[in-house]
Design a protein around this nucleic acid. Sequence first.
RNA 1: GCGCCGGUAGCUCAAUUGGCAGAGCAUUUGACUCUUAAUCAACAGGUUCCGGGUUCAAGUCCCGGCCGGCGCACCA
Length: 466
Amino acid sequence: MTPYSFAHNAYAGDLQQTWDHLIDGEESGVTVHVAGRVMLLRTQGKLAFATMRDSTGEVQLFALAALTERFDEFVRLHLGDWVGVVGEVVRTKRGELSVKVVSWSTLAVAQHNFGDKWAGIADFDLRYRHREADLWANEKSRLTLARRSDVLRSARERCWAANFMEVETPILNPIPTGASARPFSTFHNALDSQFYLRIAPELWLKRLVVGGFERVFELGRVFRNEGVSPRHNPEFTMLELYAAYWDYENMMNFTEELVANVATDVLGSTEISYQGRPLSFATPWPRRTMAELTSEAVGEEVSVHTPRRHLANLLAQRDVEVPEAWGAGRCLAELFEASAESSLWDPVFVTDHPVEVSPLARRHRNDTTLTERFESYAVGRELSNGFSELNDPVDQRLRFEEQARLAAAGDDEAMRIDEDYLRALEWGLPPTAGLGLGIDRLVMLLADESNIREVIAFPTLKPRRD
RNA sequence: GCGCCGGUAGCUCAAUUGGCAGAGCAUUUGACUCUUAAUCAACAGGUUCCGGGUUCAAGUCCCGGCCGGCGCACCA
């Protein structure tokens, strides 16, 4: 029977640092208890060398028939077995820091191997379905998921440092809202009610601001029942935060600082390389209106005031089908996506979106057909989305009603009227700015990964049907 | 959802024009007192993803299905 515990008192990584000064063949006189997984095993008659890895790194185990108990069993260990070892820290004649094994025990056996000891595990299906094996076999996977943890820690600390309080809001929602997306639905038996997994926590968070929490953030999972791709997982992690008394300019300032600081916390610099190309998070990020960028991309002046018919023609030239229900605003936003979006490499704020595509954003103070909204883009992808929040319950009702008309016309991503939210606005939402930041996308950039599944420990896969 | 590509031993990968299904590592056995992906020797290891079809003969060609990668669509 394997032990129930092990009196562990040292880590491989620490030993490598602490005993860096040991010269070849020198013995430290210090006995340690280390534990980890056997990654490699080299036997040589009455000697055996094992490479053991724990969460901090690797250290060699040096076993001798003359010293090590049950030596004949030690040399029969399998790659992947967990062992606990007691022995002296030494450096071998050939220069490898080692624990000279006196007593030891198998803590757990590995009944399956961990892939080729040189090539690891390459099969995507196996790696994603059995990430536990992938993590042992592939250093890159360990580094990427550790980096995700670093990003989460940094983002939280930066939010706390700016006096945002972390809150949690419902994942089970009677109405899916706060974004435009198809939801997952589920059912609560005792309440005899249909629920939807949240597509965004937005409205709940603003209700907390109404309640007097002036700066709140939530770092949590949202769910969207849409296609999967190298950049889309059905569940993903969003940082949403709201600050009373801020407008979207303030929030853009905060956003660029947040991302730049996270990059610095995690990588030590705002200057990184992504997929072989330099990428700079250095602030300030350019701020360009959607109309400007779209005009540049299509080679003529366009805006939300351009006749819808003309915008529709420009879209048609780009093979975009234009439904009857789209107004000039939606056409402009679609034209932006079709023409300008993919070329935005370094971070940039795209601002002043049409009201038509921004049902929760406050109208622009200089043009009521636009909103005070921004989206940051990097590497041609949307990274964040924020705005001066619409806090007028009358206008919000009009926006919801417009969404309801779209839904009636067949748009299954349109928002639904949320009476509870409207009532909350009637109690008074101060001027507030909000932000939603896609954490997975940010981790992809900071981990130099091109597939979102690499930055998610257990990405959503189709269940096997054997 | 559509298109392209892929699935061969536990893992990483070969297999020419349709012609005996292979190697390295892992496993098993043996040798070896300073190895570093140790080395050397030997044994063993297969529903070639699944189901049909064409053919004297199919890993290879055709049809259907499953799973994955990439692109498109949708979207963040």
